[in-house]
Structure formats: structure tokens, C-alpha cells
């Protein structure tokens, strides 16, 4: 009824501003209009914003991939490289088809008790206490073949948590690169892990031997090429023992049974069905 409506508005207009009723009604009206505006904008603009975020994440991973040492040659040999992300269940190594890997934060999930498991102290060589149930794996693809497995890794160094990516070649057993995008190790000493000379040593190192034992590690000093260990060992950095130990431990952790081990076992048996006959 328009006449009654008008009457209400009229009454409201004549009410003193400081009366409780009018204060409440005016505040309610203002907040309702504001809420409507904010929610409309949020809903309407969401798809556009998400598209930007998605593109940015893709660029970020491709950017990291392109910074991996020695990757240019590899990228050069791959025609039309494409990046795909998968979410995997770490314990079983299963790919979770329904999960979205793109916005999965490994470190954030590890801090949530419902999304992570506590590690037995003996197995927690990376010094991370808890580990997420799932992890994202980024695959550099050419057509339908995986050329590179890019695994996010992290662990304790000397002064900080090292965060980076470990890239494995298509066999899932050869290191293509190791790089850290964030750490706060001692400048000039621990930061030598960022030097290209040292990082490039990782390229081509084998993760496991024929019997499937985890062999990759950092040696205390220099490893002679003639040594049988040479295929699995990276030289340590003099003076940065704690940092390099941290790197070795986190690499071994994430490649081991509590890390991507189960997933990589699946990758290896798929890559060489005859060698890994046992299911």
C-alpha cells in the first residue's frame, strides 16, 4: 500500500535523528545497501579475478621451471611445452583426480592438523614435524608425454626453511635440477647453494640404484668421478656443512617413503614395466 509506505517514510523523516528507532533503522538501511553493493561486485567480478590468478600461477610455475639450471636445452628440445598440475596422495602415491593442485599450498596444509600427519621423529630428517596428506606435482608435458616432474620440496637448513623445486627427468629416477626460491641462509656461506656451479651438479644424479635403494646424497667433500658413488653424490660445500646437510636431508626426505617415494615408484614402474614387475 503506497500511502502507508509514504506515511512510514514521512514518520521516519520527522523522527529526531538521535532517537534509537531512527538510529537503528538508518544504520540498517545503510548497511543493507552497502552489503548488497559489496556482494554484487564480489559475485560479478569473481570469474575475471580468478582467471587472472590462474594465469599468474601458471606463469609462476613456468618461470620457476625456466630458472631450473640446464632447463633451456631441455625446453628447446620439447616442442610446445605445456604445464599440468596434479594433486597426489603422498602415502599411496595415488593421483587425486578431483583435487585441484593449482591452489594447494603444501606448507599451509602441513600446519593444519586435519590436513596433515605428524611424522615419526626418526623419519623426520627434513625437520618439518608435520607433513601434508596431499602434495601438488607439476608436470612439463609434450603432447601426452611427461618430460619433467617438478616436485615442490622444503625442509630445515641452518638458519631457515629452504623452499624449492626438485625436477626429475621422465624416468622419475634422474635429477634434472634442484632450485630454491626462498631461504634465509647465511649470506656468502649458506647462500652458495644458489650458485649455478653447485646447483648444476645435481643434474644427472641418480636417485635410487638398481635394487631400489635411496642412494642420492651430498658427500662430505669432493667425490672423485671414478668412485662408484659418483652417480649418486653431489659435492658438499666447505664451510656450509649445516646448510648442505639440510639440503641433502630434505632431498632424501621428499624422495623417500614419507615424501614422493610412493608416487615416484608408480612413475618408475610405468616408465619401465619390465624392470618393476612387482606391483
Amino acid at each position: 500500500m503506497p500511502s502507508k509506505r509514504k506515511g512510514l517514510l514521512e514518520a521516519l523523516r520527522e523522527m529526531p535523528n538521535d532517537s534509537s528507532t531512527k538510529t537503528l533503522l538508518v544504520t540498517l538501511a545503510v548497511t543493507s545497501v552497502c552489503a548488497l553493493l559489496v556482494s554484487t561486485a564480489a559475485v560479478l567480478l569473481r570469474p575475471v579475478q580468478l582467471a587472472h590468478q590462474e594465469r599468474e600461477r601458471e606463469e609462476q610455475i613456468l618461470g620457476i621451471a625456466s630458472r631450473l639450471p640446464g632447463i633451456e636445452q631441455l625446453m628447446g628440445t620439447i616442442e610446445a611445452p605445456r604445464l599440468e598440475s596434479r594433486l597426489i596422495e603422498l602415502e599411496t602415491g595415488r593421483v587425486i583426480e578431483s583435487g585441484s593442485a593449482a591452489d594447494y599450498d603444501l606448507l599451509l596444509a602441513a600446519s593444519d592438523p586435519r590436513q596433515s600427519v605428524e611424522l615419526p621423529p626418526d623419519e623426520d630428517i627434513a625437520g618439518i614435524q608435520r607433513r601434508a596428506l596431499f602434495a601438488p606435482v607439476h608436470l612439463l608435458m609434450q603432447e601426452d608425454e611427461v618430460k619433467l616432474y617438478i616436485l615442490p620440496v622444503y625442509g630445515s637448513g641452518y638458519a631457515s626453511t629452504l623452499q624449492g623445486y626438485l625436477a626429475l627427468a621422465e624416468d622419475g629416477n634422474t635429477v634434472a635440477a634442484l632450485t630454491f626460491y626462498q631461504h634465509k641462509e647465511t649470506p656468502g656461506i649458506g647462500t652458495r647453494i644458489d650458485r649455478p656451479e653447485w646447483r648444476s651438479q645435481w643434474q644427472g644424479k641418480k636417485v635410487r640404484d638398481e635394487e631400489g635403494r635411496l642412494r642420492i646424497d651430498i658427500a662430505a667433500g669432493t667425490v672423485p668421478d671414478s668412485s662408484p658413488e659418483a652417480a649418486y653424490r653431489v659435492d658438499g660445500i666447505t664451510g656450509a656443512t649445516r646448510t648442505t646437510r639440510g639440503v641433502a636431508n630434505l632431498v632424501r626426505f621428499w624422495l623417500g617413503d614419507y615424501g614422493y617415494g610412493p608416487y615416484l615408484a608408480r612413475v618408475r614402474s610405468a616408465a619401465a614395466p619390465d624392470a618393476g614387475a612387482s606391483p
Binding site: L12, R13, N17, D18, S19, K22, T23, V26, T27, V30, T31, C34
Partner: peptide, 16 residues
């Protein structure tokens, strides 16, 4: 809305 805002809540309304 300046003529219909109470003195006591005006800052809240403005900030909203």
C-alpha cells in the same frame, strides 16, 4: 543522508 544520521553513530555510518 547527512540530515538523518544520529550524532552518536555518524562515524560508524561514514566508515561503513
Amino acid at each position: 543522508i547527512r540530515n538523518h544520521v544520529s550524532r552518536s553513530t555518524r562515524i560508524i555510518v561514514q566508515i561503513t
